[in-house]
Simulated scan of single mutants.
Amino acid sequence: MKYVVMIFRGLDRAWTEADEQGLGRLQQLERELAESGELISSEGLRPPAEGRIVQIRDGQQVVTDGPFGEAKEQLAGYFMVDADDERAQAIAGRVSAAIGDRVELRGAVI
């Protein structure tokens, strides 16, 4: 089954040496998952200020530049993996350990 491991980051957090080390651990995990064939994709995401909301209203495309809402955290990146439930949870645990914070694990709708 396909799962996404979503990585969140506080909007007010400055980049630290610990973050740099966590990034190295995530890159190592990315290599391991690619070698095992479990990795579908993995990306870091640009900040919300660089995002856009795209929607159709009355038949016309409306584009709104970010940032959006009063969120304290942002989706900062993700790992998309193809694994059974137990393995996906173990991968999410490794991502959480690498970044030193919680992550969200969601399975794909089949």
Results as ranks from 00 to 15, higher is better:
L23H: 07
A49S: 12
A88G: 03
S96E: 02
R106V: 06
G100F: 02
E30I: 08
A97E: 11
G107E: 06
A71L: 15
L26D: 01
P67T: 08
A97R: 12
L11H: 07
E38Q: 08
E73H: 14
Q21P: 04
T64D: 13
V63I: 14
P48E: 09
I40K: 07
R87P: 05
R57M: 14
S36T: 02
D65Q: 14
Q89K: 11
G37S: 02
P47N: 06
T16S: 12
E17F: 13
L75M: 07
G37T: 06
R31L: 15
E50L: 15
L23Q: 04
G93Q: 09
R9C: 09
P67W: 09
S96F: 01
R46C: 11
K2D: 09
T64P: 04
V5A: 10
E30S: 15
E32T: 08
A90K: 10
S96C: 03
E86Y: 13
P48Q: 08
I110G: 14
V103S: 03
E104W: 11
G22Y: 00
G10Q: 13
L26E: 05
G59W: 12
E86G: 14
G100R: 10
D19A: 10
I91L: 05
Q74Y: 04
I7L: 10
L23R: 05
V81F: 08
I53F: 12
E73Q: 12
S36W: 01
V54Y: 15
K2W: 02
R25E: 14
G66Q: 04
V103F: 10
W15L: 09
Y3M: 11
M80F: 07
L26Y: 07
G66Y: 00
I56Y: 15
D82C: 05
V5N: 08
G51V: 10
V81P: 00
E30M: 15
Q89A: 15
A88Q: 01
A14S: 14
G51H: 04
Q89F: 06
E43V: 00
E35D: 12
D84C: 01
D84F: 00
Q21F: 13
A18P: 05
D58L: 06
M80Q: 08
Q55T: 07
L11Y: 03
E35M: 02
A34N: 10
A14T: 12
V81Y: 05
A92I: 03
G93Y: 07
V5K: 00
R9W: 08
V109N: 05
G93P: 01
V63W: 06
Q27E: 09
R31D: 14
G59A: 13
S36A: 12
V4G: 07
A49D: 11
Q60G: 00
R9I: 05
G24I: 02
G100V: 04
S41M: 10
Q28A: 15
P48H: 09
E86T: 11
K72F: 04
D82L: 02
R52T: 09
G37Q: 01
R52E: 09
S41W: 03
R25N: 11
D19L: 02
Q74A: 14
V95G: 00
A76G: 06
F79E: 01
G59H: 13
Q60R: 14
E104H: 08
A49W: 04
E86R: 13
G77C: 01
T64S: 14
V63R: 08
L23N: 10
D19P: 03
E50H: 12
I40S: 04
A49G: 06
G24N: 09
Q60Y: 10
